[in-house]
Design a protein around this nucleic acid. Structure first.
Lengths: 349, 349
DNA sequence: GCGGTAAGAGAAAACCTTTTCCCAGCTAAG
DNA sequence: CTTAGCTGGGAAAAGGTTTTCTCTTACCGC
């Protein structure tokens, strides 16, 4: 059979089964299976011949059959209530990236804040025998609208409130805030204000606390943080409060903002008042939302929560749990990083 | 056995099989299967007894086994190269929403622009026997870095360039642009400018064409569209070009922008020049990116591409393809809608 | 030449469900 | 009483793979 090197029919109309490979190679399915998996004992030639046959036929094992037998589906579920938000995006991508290399696929499950939807998705995942679940959300201090506490499969929580005794990963918000305030200090700024979001968010207090701590540690006066909304509008208002009164000498020379939108509002408001950023006042944001941070004038220095890494770590943690490695329960905090742009000025040489 | 109504052990440590249900109910697995699926013939009591047993035991059929037999996995893949972007988000959510009700789960596959990653994901999906694939991207005029043209499963393209002869869904950009320009006309504006993104994008030309058409149809002068970047910065520059020269009488009284970021730049730049929006100039954006549109001062009227609906339609189209309904190949355009805020003023009573 | 051993390969069970076919028992008609 | 027809339910195959067990053959040392 002088066949010219025919390419593997990678997209044959009907999938080729192990049975066919075995028949073509003239062996039993058992032998074929072992040859392809590197199991069992056989002559090197036999093994190679079978492998070659499989390659030629474009054989790909049916995952469903494998999963059924191995009790391992190489599939995990990703539960989120923030499908439209920007936090879960890098997180989801991180999870997916970490897992695709190991042959694990990810089910995307958007539950909004709907109990029924959550139940529906969890049941669908369980039926499909996912190996584990990553639960993620838009707020560190809120639960997803589903109960994952008593499942027979491992669950990892990322950027959402974990059940007690579970494995959780969150960003180190306190550390992130520290990064920002200490950056200001290194640049010689001393009158540092903090403008943040609503008091109902846990991160607002975590960051505010860290802000106070750093100032105290350095013997500086602590201004009570201004809490409001996560919006540009609040940034404008906050500037009015901070820079409205009295003489220049009472004004802050730095504003640490709870997110990038507030920071944007602050920068715009300062410009409208003729106050220069970064010459008169330095500004740092939080989230490092590039599309905002790069559009402010000047571009905004901001704290990045490394959500993509967080997702990646969550994926890996889940995987090792699935493999039976016992993971230390509790919340693990992953460091943030400061992305320096031009809203703080340069350090004195 | 006076058992108190014990709740179904919904999360038993090991899944209950049909075999166990059958044994408990004292029938064969065949009968049990038929009872639960409403197939076969048996006394109503038998059927009910089996169902009750299954409920009590918390039986849930193993999807893997079902899929293997039925050759239908109730699983589809969602391929995207825009995991970080905001276009695919609502789209993905739409797809997922449309399918979860039918018991279909969605694999999230982020391929970036990486051929290898694309190949990897497609093979993983094929191995897992997905019933079909939705391909989506960040640009209507670009291909994903994978070849889906010769798969044995149906593929639907949404918001990305489809292969010839395939089913594709995109937003009606021309219609969207029309919506914007005609809105201006209804408000009595006559000197309408168009500021858009880079010429390398197909949508830029589609929208510009529609812009010209509407003006011509109404016997108005057509200003050549200003093409630049998708950024706020370009919005500022464009304002300098449009409003820098000559006397007020040459200025536009409306600017239709290619996206919301440009629109934001335009609005900010106009304010800095003391030109009032909407009194002197109306502004309309494109994309209806709420976080931007609601932060402009005044809030931005914008064209929404209904991406969520697009995703939903794509999901449903794929499903009917999977069910063997032949779908008309070619590109289907879904209408946009205009979301009116305050950047254009009110219509004359 | 014989017992022992190891290599090479296959048969069959297992995973869990669905579906087709068949059987036993009963009723009613002839 | 025989036969046809129906009813309720079970046996078994199918789906594709992995794995354990078993079998055959050949080789080695004595």
């Amino acid at each position: 059979m002088p066949s010219d090197a025919e390419p593997a029919p990678v997209s044959a109309k009907t999938p080729v089964t192990l049975r066919e490979v075995a028949a073509t190679a003239g062996v039993s399915v058992a032998t074929a299976s072992k040859a392809l998996n590197g199991q069992g004992r056989m002559t090197a030639e036999t093994r190679e011949r079978i492998r070659e046959t499989a390659r030629l036929l474009g054989f790909r094992p049916n995952s469903l059959a494998q999963s059924l037998l191995r009790k391992r589906s190489f599939t995990v579920g990703l539960l989120t209530n923030d499908t439209y938000g920007r936090f879960s995006l890098p997180l989801m991508a991180g999870v997916s990236d970490a897992l695709v290399d190991k042959g694990v696929s990810v089910f995307l499950c958007n539950v909004e804040d709907d109990q029924r939807l959550g139940q529906l998705h969890v049941e669908a995942m369980l039926d499909k025998r996912v190996d584990g679940i990553v639960a993620t959300g838009k707020r560190i201090d809120r639960h997803l609208p589903v109960d994952l506490s008593d499942l027979r499969i491992p669950v990892v929580y990322a950027f959402t409130q974990p059940d007690p005794g579970a494995v959780g990963l969150v960003s180190d918000d306190a550390g992130g805030a520290r990064l920002a305030v200490e950056h200001f200090l290194r640049l010689g700024r001393r009158r540092i204000a903090h403008v943040s979001g609503p008091a109902s968010f846990a991160v607002v207090h975590t960051r505010a606390e860290a802000y106070r701590d750093v100032l105290k540690e350095n013997g500086l006066a602590v201004n009570e943080p201004l809490l409001g909304a996560w919006s540009e509008g609040w940034g404008h208002e906050a500037v009015a409060k901070l820079f409205g009164s009295a003489g220049r000498e009472g004004w802050p020379d730095a504003v640490f903002c709870g997110n990038d939108q507030i920071a944007r509002g602050v920068i715009d408001a300062l410009r409208e008042r003729g106050i220069s950023v970064p010459d008169d006042v330095g500004v740092i944001g939080f989230d490092n939302w590039e599309i905002v941070a790069e559009a402010t004038r000047p571009p905004l220095t901001s704290v990045d929560m490394n959500l993509s890494t967080l997702g990646r770590e969550a994926g890996l943690a889940l995987l090792s749990l699935v493999d039976g490695q016992p993971a230390a329960p509790g919340i693990r905090k992953l460091p943030c990083r400061l992305v320096v742009r031009q809203s703080c000025g340069s350090p004195p040489e």
